[in-house]
């Protein structure tokens, strides 16, 4: 059972700045991701055992996962070319993701990831 503890990571995801509207108008979500995921970011759950090329779950995988599993409408307002649409800010544990390696950041148990849209009128 020692392996069971490391086979998944549970993180908190929050949407604001209007992005929550694309996610059932719910700001805060808790989700559990597989610790090892396909390198092509396919988000089939559970990860098929036939897949050999894996990587640790990172923010790029999280973005694909959110698009495929949590997003309810207008995917183009969230994801573009495998990352978030320009104009969406990402914070990992309250730190600008640009300081954390952006999509390559490997998620850890208990991480908090915030997505904020800047595209709404002021």
């Amino acid at each position: 059972m020692a392996g069971a503890e490391t086979s998944s990571v549970t993180i908190k995801v929050e949407f604001s700045g209007g992005l929550e509207l694309l996610f059932s108008n719910q700001r805060s979500h808790t989700l559990t991701l597989p610790a090892a995921v396909p390198t092509d970011n396919a988000t089939t759950v559970p990860v098929p055992s036939t897949i050999e090329a894996t990587k640790p779950a990172d923010i790029t995988y999280l973005i694909h996962y959110l698009r495929d599993h949590l997003l309810q409408e207008r995917a183009e307002l969230f994801e573009e070319n495998g990352t978030v649409r320009p104009g969406i800010l990402v914070l990992i544990n309250d730190t600008d993701w640009e300081l954390e390696g952006e999509g390559d950041y490997v998620v850890k148990e208990g991480d908090e990831v915030v997505f904020i849209s800047t595209l709404h009128g002021g």
Binding site: S16, G17, G18, L21, G87, L89, L91, D94, D96, V114, I116, S117, T118, H120, G121, G122
Partner: peptide, 21 residues
Amino acid sequence: YEKEIVMYAYFKKLDYFSTEC
């Protein structure tokens, strides 16, 4: 920059409204 305004609002926990017209 807009990014800094949004970051400022986030870190200061300012109360703002964000819905498209």
